[in-house]
Design a protein around this nucleic acid. Structure first.
Lengths: 188, 188
DNA sequence: TTTATTTTTTGATATAGGTCAAAAGAAAAC
DNA sequence: GTTTTCTTTTGACCTATATCAAAAAATAAA
């Protein structure tokens, strides 16, 4: 997925604007298991995923990791609250598959936001999209059985389900990996 | 809480901008138990709460209501995804205490967003704030015991806790009212 | 005040899903 | 190909919290 196509699809940037925006992004390649962000530090980069798969997660007191979100091709990735509020991140960012990313620093993003009305609109739309997705996850999660939560996952993210390890999916859905394993057994 | 103060606190609007923005809002008063929005309909209004308290909720298949969010003085209220995406709302909006609100329609909001770069910024910041709050709730909710969830509520929304009925709080925190009642008994 | 309605509390019981432990299977490293 | 490491599965057991039912308390209506 090309970054320019993604942006144009969201907001009708002029050629000039688009060029000036894209130029601020930097291509970066990462290998599986790379950590892009450690919790407690401020997220300074917003990434666009050209290719690959990542997740955000945190570690509980008992040492168990909890996945908060998966990020796939053609999507932006960051610890969004940390990036936009410039506060320490609750999450880590981890590369799950070798990836090609385009990154932009907070400073550069601020410049673009101030310079282009359209850029504000773009990020406004993205923020609302993130919010909407989170709302959907909450609805699918709260007051639903483990089985129902997994069904939601298959429906909403069918392609992710089979690229990601069972443990990561389980914690994303708020259950143990043993439970998810048992659910899968009783599926077709 | 005055709307103009709230807006100025977020973005440095000029006097001119601010006047033109405020003029599009309309004062409306509502009595306790009024329903501002029914699920399945598109949320056409964004409200600013000058005074009062409301909630968003949905009804489960078994007929039980689940509170999604509480909205208090000095905050915006809407079924946000429904309003900004103009899609049918999953939630109802209900007034919990007699209220004075300022409302703006989606059409007018669109105009302001297109007209003022600062307005885009304002809504972008609000969207990120909503997102951030939802993230916090998820973190406080997922993988935590009923007791821990209630502690989070007291910490995060100390003034709300004692204005709202037990049942509403319980469903907001993803537990039954019986459980919350038992938790409260064992406090102090 | 008295009655009706709604909300909260309490008790008894049931169960989904957690925890712990260990085996089996798959993937990575050597 | 063999060994090591990581991931998934399976079993036994346990606990937090749901459910159901009914009493008590609080609030609203008459």
């Amino acid at each position: 997925m090309k970054l320019s196509d993604f942006l144009l699809n969201l907001v009708p940037f002029s050629d000039e604007e688009l060029t000036d925006i894209i130029i601020h992004f930097k291509e970066e390649k990462f290998k599986k298991n790379a950590i892009l962000l450690k919790n407690g530090t401020i997220c300074d980069k917003l990434y666009f995923i050209k290719e690959g798969m990542s997740r955000s997660f945190y570690t509980r007191k008992d040492g168990k990791e909890v996945t908060q979100w998966f990020f796939g091709n053609g999507h932006f990735m960051a610890s969004a609250e940390s990036f936009f509020n410039q506060t320490p991140s609750f999450y880590n960012l981890e590369i799950l598959e070798d990836s090609i990313l385009y990154s932009i620093s907070f400073k550069k993003m601020e410049l673009l936001l101030a310079k282009y009305h359209n850029m504000e609109k773009c990020i406004r739309l993205l923020s609302i999209e993130m919010f909407t997705k989170l709302v959907h996850k909450m609805n699918a999660t709260q007051f639903h059985s483990a089985k129902e939560r997994y069904s939601y996952m298959i429906l909403e993210y069918p392609n992710i389900v089979h690229r990601i390890s069972l443990g990561h999916i389980a914690s994303y859905l708020g259950m143990t990996q043993e439970t998810l394993s048992r659910i899968r057994r009783n599926e077709t």
